[in-house]
Design a protein around this nucleic acid. Structure first.
Lengths: 147, 147
DNA sequence: TCAGGTTACATAGACGTCAATACATTGATA
DNA sequence: TATCAATGTATTGACGTCTATGTAACCTGA
């Protein structure tokens, strides 16, 4: 009966894609109650945590392309949550900071993000979460290394 | 030293998002060599595997919204890889089948997809992959259940 | 038989994302 | 100092994705 000739790796890839989409959707639902999308929330949180931070560093920390970060930050600046400052050292660089409004919202959104994470990942025990984090890091790092 | 006041769940959520993006990107690179995107490849493969299949069923199997599936299938039909047939039973329904060309490409793309999966998931052992699959299923299923 | 709710699909508009490109600045080298 | 490659951002065009909505067909109960 089991015609599972489908390789385990392919199955995991399928499942990964599925689960990633489901989780993204649920995160967006949770954060949507606060009137913010997940990407915006993550960007503001990261800027608040590491300010002042360069655009490129922000992009790589959050794991998005530099161009994407540029566009998203643009919207945050338009909304008055983030400010761009020229760097004194390097006039090409842009240093990002949150505004007062941005800081307040960042605080609120970070809490909401953490609650959502806690809730959505509840099916796994703390021990399993640690294992999962290890798996994810190994998968994400492979190929990024010194090769 | 460790100021890891950041909850483990939030860290895992961050890492999940990061890794998902990295993997998606790498899959696209691999499959791009065959002139196809990952979503297109997965759709054609699933249609080939389960034909004739309804649009809605296809969408839920692959884990995308029905409207998205509709748009993507549209492109596949335009490219002559997939055909839409009216269902005899239910005139609202659309039954999807691959064309001869589609079947040939599906075969090739499925192989490429499986090779890519095997390669990208190589950092984990077979045993770990099984564990990971279980984690993913539990995360994805939670909330979808009989509640 | 027909009215109203449900289901299947298509379409529209918005968003996040990427790669590729353009531009300004920097740094290293001749 | 003049030049040229490398670096930091912004912009552009394409794609996959979602939700919300529209339309047609189905089904059920009076």
């Amino acid at each position: 009966m089991p015609q599972s000739t489908r390789p385990i790796a392919a199955e995991v890839a399928d499942e990964f894609s599925r689960t990633a989409k489901v989780l993204v959707r649920r995160f967006d639902e949770r954060l949507g109650e606060y009137g913010v999308s997940t990407p915006r929330s993550r960007l503001v949180a990261e800027i608040a945590r590491s300010q002042p931070i360069r655009l490129t560093e922000l992009a790589s920390t959050v794991g998005i392309a530099q161009g994407t970060a540029s566009t998203l930050v643009d919207a945050l600046v338009r909304d008055g949550l983030v400010e761009r400052h020229a760097s004194a050292d390097d006039r090409r660089a842009v240093l990002l900071r949150v505004t007062e409004d941005g800081a307040a919202l960042a605080h609120q959104w970070t809490a909401a993000y953490e609650r959502a994470a806690d809730e959505l990942l509840r099916p796994l025990t703390a021990r399993e979460l640690t294992t999962l984090r290890g798996f994810l890091q190994r998968l994400g790092d492979a190929g990024t290394e010194t090769e």
